[in-house]
Amino acid sequence: MYKNEPIFLQPTLHERIWGGQKLKTDYGYPIPSDHTGEAWVISAHPHGPSIIANGELKGKTLLDAWNEHGELFNKKAGEDEEYPLLVKILDANDDLSVQVHPNDDFARSVEGVPYGKTECWYILSAEENAELVLGHHAKTRKEFEKMVDAGEWDKLLRRVNVKTGDFVYVPSGTIHAIGKGIVILETQQSSDITYRVYDYDRTDANGNKRELHLERSKQVTNVPHIDAKVEQTVETFGDLTEKKLVEEQYFTVYHWNLNGKTKRNCHHDFLQVSVVEGKAVLTIGDKTFELKKGMHFILPNSINEYELKGQAEFIVSHV
């Protein structure tokens, strides 16, 4: 099963109050409305598992594959852990709410779910002067809580300008928000816990404000905010330039720039691959697969060697 084949995945699409149409115009996805904010492109999360598009498991979900065919991911026999990672593309046609996510310990003890949420963003596109919220200016927890209670958001929130190709690492406990005009590829722990801190007093179609989670936010926010340091390295493999964006406890993420041909060996339990620009051909044994922007796949544990040929950019990750 999938011995010489990648597992291609179809995204699950989610409408959001801040979403737009770029998931259709830029990536060709069949969006459900003009306010589509998220494509869960590599997901085994029960809130939106990706559908397998090829092979013996075609039509099943990645969650099914993880539960029923753990050997594809080098999952140890008898292990009941959940699929560890989730990859999304987000189209911020408007500002996202300011939010924070808990760590594993808090998620398990308070929410009863296996994973907290550490995440990272590769900026696929950003309008001029686009910015996001990353962290806050409070020096002590008392000061932080006082500013939240008083709604002193302009004073509290730390804003950062970003451009296409930037990378942002967002550990759990970091106050953050993606700003208007930004499209990102997000690699994260497989978690859907979000504590909303501030939502610009927006209302939905029925005039209702979205729920805030201030008490939980106060409990899990890192104070003071300290920017996470990431060490990035660059290596070349044939005509492929690999930039390691982050390597830490939950995931390692790379940007690959292919300008010709490369042969690679797979040393990981499984490899998650997203084509974010261009076209390429993937060769495994005697099989070839056409790749283009907006495609996402997993190289399962059975694949040792593969070849890529073309002009393309990829975001790649593994545990």
Score class of each variant (00 low, 15 high):
residue 214 L to V: 11
residue 272 Q to D: 09
residue 252 T to H: 00
residue 25 T to C: 05
residue 85 L to Y: 08
residue 136 H to P: 11
residue 79 E to K: 11
residue 269 D to H: 02
residue 181 G to R: 10
residue 30 P to G: 06
residue 7 I to T: 05
residue 53 A to C: 02
residue 113 V to A: 04
residue 110 V to T: 12
residue 244 K to F: 00
residue 175 I to A: 05
residue 20 G to K: 05
residue 56 E to D: 09
residue 241 T to V: 08
residue 188 Q to A: 04
residue 206 N to S: 02
residue 40 W to T: 02
residue 56 E to V: 11
residue 208 N to L: 06
residue 188 Q to M: 11
residue 20 G to F: 11
residue 75 K to Y: 12
residue 39 A to D: 02
residue 265 N to T: 13
residue 150 A to M: 14
residue 244 K to V: 08
residue 154 D to G: 14
residue 118 T to D: 14
residue 80 D to T: 14
residue 126 A to K: 04
residue 286 D to V: 10
residue 63 L to T: 05
residue 305 E to R: 11
residue 120 C to T: 13
residue 190 S to R: 12
residue 287 K to N: 02
residue 64 D to A: 03
residue 199 D to N: 09
residue 229 K to D: 00
residue 184 I to G: 03
residue 161 N to D: 10
residue 70 G to H: 14
residue 278 G to Q: 06
residue 60 K to F: 09
residue 145 E to M: 13
residue 150 A to H: 10
residue 282 L to P: 03
residue 36 T to G: 00
residue 80 D to M: 08
residue 131 E to D: 10
residue 53 A to T: 13
residue 67 N to E: 15
residue 76 K to G: 03
residue 131 E to T: 04
residue 23 L to N: 03
residue 296 H to G: 06
residue 53 A to Q: 10
residue 285 G to Q: 11
residue 56 E to Q: 04
residue 288 T to E: 03
residue 204 D to T: 01
residue 215 E to N: 10
residue 200 Y to D: 02
residue 266 C to A: 06
residue 69 H to R: 07
residue 165 G to I: 12
residue 166 D to N: 14
residue 245 L to N: 07
residue 150 A to Q: 15
residue 74 N to F: 11
residue 116 G to F: 07
residue 118 T to A: 09
residue 254 Y to F: 12
residue 96 L to Q: 05
residue 166 D to V: 13
residue 13 L to V: 13
residue 305 E to F: 08
residue 18 W to T: 05
residue 240 L to G: 00
residue 171 P to N: 06
residue 155 K to V: 15
residue 8 F to H: 11
residue 42 I to V: 11
residue 138 A to S: 12
residue 66 W to P: 01
residue 183 V to T: 14
residue 20 G to T: 10
residue 208 N to S: 03
residue 212 L to F: 10
residue 266 C to E: 00
residue 33 S to C: 02
residue 129 N to Q: 11
residue 55 G to V: 12
residue 210 R to E: 10
residue 169 Y to T: 00
residue 15 E to D: 15
residue 67 N to H: 09
residue 93 N to G: 10
residue 143 E to Y: 07
residue 298 I to A: 03
residue 191 S to Y: 02
residue 19 G to R: 08
residue 148 V to K: 10
residue 303 I to C: 10
residue 158 R to Q: 14
residue 220 V to M: 04
residue 117 K to F: 04
residue 90 L to H: 06
residue 147 M to W: 13
residue 45 H to C: 01
residue 22 K to G: 03
residue 286 D to E: 07
residue 77 A to G: 05
residue 23 L to Q: 06
residue 257 N to L: 04
residue 138 A to T: 13
residue 196 R to E: 08
residue 184 I to Q: 11
residue 110 V to R: 05
residue 298 I to T: 11
residue 264 R to V: 02
residue 143 E to N: 08
residue 149 D to F: 08
residue 250 Y to K: 01
residue 225 H to D: 09
residue 174 T to E: 07
residue 206 N to M: 05
residue 251 F to I: 01
residue 282 L to H: 02
residue 231 E to D: 07
residue 145 E to F: 06
residue 157 L to G: 09
residue 6 P to T: 12
residue 205 A to C: 01
residue 155 K to N: 14
residue 303 I to L: 05
residue 206 N to I: 01
residue 231 E to G: 02
residue 95 D to H: 15
residue 103 N to Q: 11
residue 269 D to C: 04
residue 280 A to N: 07
residue 119 E to A: 07
residue 159 R to P: 07
residue 169 Y to P: 03
residue 126 A to M: 08
residue 64 D to Y: 15
residue 31 I to H: 01
residue 95 D to W: 15
residue 156 L to D: 14
